[in-house]
């Protein structure tokens, strides 16, 4: 598939889209003012999923109860101004408006809050995780598991999904999580250990992927960025609600939060 930008002309491309134009020239050796550009789907933005209120406070249940002291803003957060799909250029709202509101609120919170007592040895959990990774003697590598995770999520849980694909993805994730317990680090150094960093990150990616896949299995409708080939219509009767995911041992508990509708009614996107 190609994107034809030639009608814009060299001047407009250089002045209004300098970065995109530079990417095409650098990586493809193509001048987009002369030739069409080959394109493919990619992850351009993360519609985060950490639920917050309008002050960036992370909320922890169906009743919008804030988790004191924890804030999220930007791509990681879901304030819910975008509905089920962020449209082009609207990321600025998350950055400029809710970044600012969260910062202001966090500053106010810090001013009026004393240190809370810490549990005994709060660092124990993460230290155990890290020392397990250092002492792992398994046969699996971080890079190989991550590559399989990337391929599987691209094949089975990306733009178009159906029950069969998502169940495949779910099973693959179970396998990868099992194998993840059997990884070994080649780099045992303590300073700037980027492999350790990648290993920790992979653990989180596996958990996030499970949340994504399992909530997509549950949601038997299509809405916003979630498109089910086997349930192609929006179903407001059963699914006009937010998904909340909770870690419960090795499993995920799902709960649902009602959608607050004020001025604008949710509508089908017809373009």
């Amino acid at each position: 598939m190609h994107l034809d930008l030639t009608h814009l002309g060299k001047k407009v491309l250089d002045e209004k889209l300098p970065d995109i134009t530079d990417f095409v020239r650098t990586y493809l050796g193509i001048d987009p003012s002369v030739n069409p550009v080959p394109i493919q789907p990619t992850a351009h933005y993360t519609m985060g999923g950490i639920p917050t209120d309008v002050d960036g406070r992370v909320i922890m249940d169906e009743k919008n109860t804030p988790l004191p002291g924890l804030y999220a803003a930007g791509e990681c957060a879901t304030v819910s101004v975008h509905g089920a799909n962020r449209l082009g250029t609207n990321s600025l709202v998350d950055l400029v408006v809710f970044g600012r509101r969260s910062g202001k609120h966090a500053a106010l919170y810090v001013k009026n809050t004393d240190f809370i007592p810490l549990p005994k040895k709060p660092e124990d959990g993460i230290q155990a995780t890290i020392s397990d990774l250092y002492s792992g003697t398994g046969t699996e590598s971080v890079a190989k598991i991550r590559l399989e995770l990337q391929n599987d999520m691209m094949d089975n849980a990306s733009v178009y999904r159906n029950q069969k694909m998502l169940i495949n993805a779910k099973n693959k994730l179970l396998e990868l999580k099992k194998r993840y317990k059997n990884i070994a680090l080649g780099d045992k150094s303590k300073q700037f250990n980027m492999e350790l960093f990648e290993a920790l990150e992979l653990g989180f990616l596996l958990e996030l992927a499970s949340v994504l896949v399992e909530s997509a299995v549950n949601r038997t409708e299509s809405r916003g960025a979630h498109y089910r080939e086997d349930f192609s219509k929006r179903d407001d009767t059963n699914w006009l609600k937010h998904t909340l995911a909770y870690k419960a041992g090795d499993k995920i508990d799902f709960r649902y939060k009602p959608v607050v509708i004020t001025k604008y009614l949710p509508k089908e996107r017809k373009y």
Partner: peptide, 19 residues
């Protein structure tokens, strides 16, 4: 090199497209 030959090789990288 880092992922398949020698994981001790260390360098910074993030966006991977010059930004």
């Amino acid at each position: 090199i880092k992922w398949y030959q020698d994981s001790t090789l260390s360098y910074r990288r993030s966006c991977a497209h010059g930004i």
